[in-house]
Design a protein around this nucleic acid. Structure first.
Length: 637
RNA sequence: GCUGGCGUAGCUCAACUGGCAGAGCAGCUGAUUUGUAAUCAGCAGGUUGCGGGUUCAUUUCCUGUCGCCAGCUCCA
């Protein structure tokens, strides 16, 4: 009998070939680790514990604390759910696919009748029963042909379709209880470990993610190795709900969206508007410091412009339809660039003036499908913190570096210092010469490296007109939001026949860089709200302080403090209503105002205010001027 | 756009299978003059998203439409 050698943590042991992973495990690790092991990895292959080992190599137990283990658990949960669904709803349900996801699993079903939330509970209950039965997950291998036959007989057309596309001669099936699925595995040894499972929601999903295909019913769920972890996760969902910018936006009176105005169109209430103004002021200031010049451009332009720019051809379906004015077609702008180009074309340029850096907080309108709209995150009218840089190819690297520098600085100021950075390279359909693409992609790469930034290459994900860098910011609870983008463009300068006079006296074509740091002010605002859960840092807080008097006896003094702080540029309010201090404090607290200034007889007599912080702490009494200095020292500007 | 769910007072939510639409908070009025997260009382607040239908009668059932929510698709 042949032998195999397994190596674990530097130690090797020899076994007879064909020994199962579980048996090998028994020899190689302690009982405690064994109990925690759900599968093994031999070299690069993940295997069931019941798998016979035919080749030796590096042997790694996949224990519960590893991410792969969780994925295996959830994948197994998906199978269990499918079993429960078939159990309850019979053979008229067709099963599609059921993978594990980052935070759970789903399974897609095709069934005439829609599932209801009640069904979800029934399915979950059935799953618990099935789990209690501890049915083993059994792997079977058979020829593709046999599997085709099997699933055809089972009346499972989706599995048949999948099988038709598999090239391998042999496929694996997994059976647990009465359910058999086409599956690569691995799985848990048995369903008994599926104790902490929760079905979360129902949704439609197109078969294979293609909107031309039939829509199936997807059931989402999640699973953990123990109840505590599950509870923690469900708690996190609750916490995220509390941060929802739509909820906080309403409660804190930051913005409103109304039917009467239209979906995806944002109305900024005074407090939100104040916050926006602070953001914008900071943004302009910072751009001035970084050698940008500010532009303003209109919201509509002749349709011809969008023909020339190519937007109508490429993105026409995402633009609001044309309007006719004196027999001329006009178009609401989906982008600012053609306007900036028009400004560029207002005169001749010399290479000596390059790079030209122009920025604008430009409001654009894009037609988004109704189903895509989402609070501030996905809207139909929004303001981009846009900029266009006109330069020569040899400027690229330095310019990109400068943009990254400004970009990260701005994001950091707003409290974001955790990012995922992506470099998207040439797609299949593109314009511009290969040489240009090479050069531009290199420039992006070098700038990222020079800045010491780790990034992921997204091959083929660039825009047709040039490569790009995208920065996704991570908020305080770890969600990633696409905000910043830096794109090189060979297309528009060509289409608009831009030129500049070079050193040699000849006409040359400039390169354009498009870039946005916050992306859309609306979306960025939404991210800020969720990041801070509405408790904005003092420099951003629409109201920085609220004066709360204790009785009417201090009214004159309140007025005096209020005026002094206003004059000092502090965003202060007064709550001089005839209410108890407790009431006033609660209200200011709920509104997440950073400072409460308590004023009673003592303070009035001494000419001070007692400062209460949002977190409940108190600062010692201080004169209003001292408080103003404290607040002013508390921000980036 | 697609699938499913949901639209009741400014907000959060009630109203059993069709039978006069109700509460808390917010608002207004009055009393209370109060020291670190809700003082008490009174008043007012609605074409139940909108249109059509069924019915003696509809917030409730059917239908169309608009919007919202969860996903899918899309996001220059």
């Amino acid at each position: 009998m042949s032998q195999i050698t397994l190596t674990l943590a530097g130690e090797s042991k020899t076994f007879p070939a064909g020994i199962t992973a579980a048996e090998a495990l028994k020899e190689l690790v302690s009982g405690k680790v064994r109990k925690q092991t759900v599968a093994v990895r031999v070299n690069d292959a993940l295997l069931d514990l019941s798998a016979p080992l035919t080749a030796g190599g590096l042997f790694v137990p996949i224990t519960e604390d590893q991410p792969e283990a969780l994925a295996i658990l959830r994948h197994s949960a998906a199978h269990l759910m499918a079993e429960a669904v078939l159990d309850l709803f019979g053979e008229r349900v067709k099963v599609a696919i059921g993978p594990a996801t980052d935070d759970g699993f789903y399974y897609d079903f095709d069934r005439e009748q829609p599932f209801t939330p009640d069904d979800l509970e029934r399915i979950e209950a059935r799953m618990a029963e099935l789990a209690a039965a501890r049915a083993p997950f059994q792997r079977e291998e058979m020829s593709r042909e046999a599997a085709l036959d099997f699933f055809a007989k089972q009346g499972q057309p989706y599995k048949v379709e999948l099988l038709h596309e598999i090239e391998a001669e042999t496929v694996s099936l997994y059976r647990q209880g009465g359910f058999v699925d086409l599956c690569r595995g691995p799985h848990l040894p048995d369903s008994g470990r599926l104790q902490a499972v929760k079905l979360l929601r129902l949704a439609g999903a197109y078969w294979r993610g293609d909107e031309k295909n039939k829509m199936l019913q997807r059931i989402y769920g999640t699973a953990f190795f123990d109840q505590k972890e599950l509870k923690k996760y469900l708690n996190q969902l609750e916490e995220a709900k509390k941060r929802d910018h739509r909820k906080l936006g309403r409660e804190l009176e930051l913005f409103t969206i109304q039917d009467q105005i239209g979906p995806g169109l944002i109305l900024w209430q005074p407090k939100g508007a104040m916050l926006r103004r602070i953001i914008e002021d900071y943004w302009r200031e910072e751009h001035y410091r970084h050698d940008y010049e500010l532009l303003y451009t209109p919201h509509i332009a002749r349709r011809d412009l969008w023909q020339t720019s190519g937007h109508l051809d490429f993105y026409g379906e995402n633009m609001f339809s044309a309007m006719e004015i004196e027999e001329v077609q006009y178009q609401l702008k989906p982008m600012n660039c053609p306007f900036h180009i028009a400004i560029y074309k207002a005169r001749k340029w010399s290479y000596r003036e390059f790079p030209v850096r122009w920025c604008e907080l430009g409001t654009v309108y894009r037609f988004e499908k109704t189903g895509a709209l989402h609070g501030l995150m996905r809207v139909r009218g929004f303001t981009q913190d846009d900029a266009h840089i006109f330069c020569r190819p040899d400027h690229l690297e330095d310019e990109i570096f400068r943009i990254l520098d400004l970009n990260l600085h701005v994001l950091k100021t707003f409290g974001f210092s955790d990012y995922d950075i992506y470099l998207s390279t040439r797609p299949e359909k593109y314009v511009g010469s290969d040489e240009h693409w090479q050069q531009a992609t290199n420039a992006l790469k070098l700038a990222l490296e020079k800045k010491g930034l780790a990034y992921t290459v997204d091959p083929g994900e660039g825009v047709f007109y040039g490569p790009k860098i995208d920065i996704k910011i991570k908020d305080v609870i770890g969600r990633a939001w696409q905000c910043s983008t830096i794109q090189v463009d060979f297309n528009l300068p060509e289409r608009f026949e831009l030129g500049y006079t070079g050193e040699d006296g000849a006409e040359h074509r400039p390169i354009m860089i498009h870039r946005a740091l916050m992306g859309s002010l609306e979306r960025f605002f939404g991210v800020l709200i969720e990041h801070y859960a509405g408790a904005f840092p003092v420099w951003l807080a629409p109201v920085q302080a609220r004066i709360c008097n204790i009785t009417d006896a201090q009214l004159d003094y309140v007025e005096k403090v209020y005026r002094e702080l206003r004059r000092a540029g502090i965003r202060v309010e007064k709550d001089s209503r005839n209410e108890k201090l407790n009431y006033k404090i609660r209200e200011a607290q709920v509104q997440k105002i950073p400072y409460m200034l308590i004023v009673g007889d003592k303070e009035a007599a001494e000419g001070t205010v007692t400062v209460r912080l949002r977190d409940g702490q108190n600062l010692p009494p201080m004169p209003p001027a001292e408080f103003a200095a404290l607040v002013r020292g508390d921000g980036p500007i």
